[in-house]
Lab assay of single mutants.
Amino acid sequence: MQRVNMIMAESPGLITICLLGYLLSAECTVFLDHENANKILNRPKRYNSGKLEEFVQGNLERECMEEKCSFEEAREVFENTERTTEFWKQYVDGDQCESNPCLNGGSCKDDINSYECWCPFGFEGKNCELDVTCNIKNGRCEQFCKNSADNKVVCSCTEGYRLAENQKSCEPAVPFPCGRVSVSQTSKLTRAETVFPDVDYVNSTEAETILDNITQSTQSFNDFTRVVGGEDAKPGQFPWQVVLNGKVDAFCGGSIVNEKWIVTAAHCVETGVKITVVAGEHNIEETEHTEQKRNVIRIIPHHNYNAAINKYNHDIALLELDEPLVLNSYVTPICIADKEYTNIFLKFGSGYVSGWGRVFHKGRSALVLQYLRVPLVDRATCLRSTKFTIYNNMFCAGFHEGGRDSCQGDSGGPHVTEVEGTSFLTGIISWGEECAMKGKYGIYTKVSRYVNWIKEKTKLT
Rank of each mutant, 00 (worst) to 15 (best):
F123S: 06
D95Q: 12
Q216A: 15
G13Q: 13
K137T: 14
K188E: 10
V419C: 05
A26Y: 07
N135K: 12
G229E: 15
S411G: 12
A9H: 12
D111P: 03
A317S: 04
D405N: 14
C435S: 04
D249Q: 12
V359T: 15
N313Q: 13
G254E: 00
L460K: 13
Q237S: 07
P375F: 11
R83L: 13
K51P: 00
P324H: 05
N135W: 08
H267W: 03
P324L: 04
D405Y: 12
N147T: 15
S365D: 15
G125Q: 03
N38R: 11
L460R: 12
V195N: 13
C145V: 02
Q90S: 14
C134I: 03
S11W: 08
S406P: 12
L211F: 14
L376F: 08
Y22N: 07
E61K: 05
P301D: 03
T209Y: 11
F348G: 12
F176H: 10
E193Y: 15
A366P: 14
C102L: 01
G106E: 03
I40E: 02
N258T: 06
G253M: 15
K137Q: 13
G351R: 02
V227D: 15
P101H: 06
T386K: 07
V377W: 03
K438N: 10
W240C: 00
K446S: 09
T158S: 09
I112Y: 09
I262S: 00
D315R: 01
S11I: 14
E79M: 09
Q185N: 11
S156M: 12
C108D: 02
S184F: 15
H267V: 02
L376T: 07
Q370Y: 04
L346T: 07
E323C: 05
F360S: 15
Y330H: 10
V154S: 11
F345D: 01
E320K: 04
I299F: 08
D150F: 09
Y450K: 02
R373E: 06
C155W: 01
R404P: 15
Q2E: 13
E281D: 12
F71W: 10
C128Y: 02
K455Q: 08
D212K: 08
S448W: 02
T422F: 03
S354G: 13
V242D: 00
I7A: 14
P175H: 09
V92M: 13
E285L: 13
C435T: 04
N80R: 04
N304Y: 10
F78A: 01
L41F: 05
G432H: 08
K455D: 04
V56K: 00
L383E: 15
Q408P: 09
I40C: 05
W356T: 05
W88C: 02
T461Y: 12
G421N: 10
N343K: 06
R162I: 11
N80P: 03
E67R: 00
F251M: 08
N245R: 13
P172E: 06
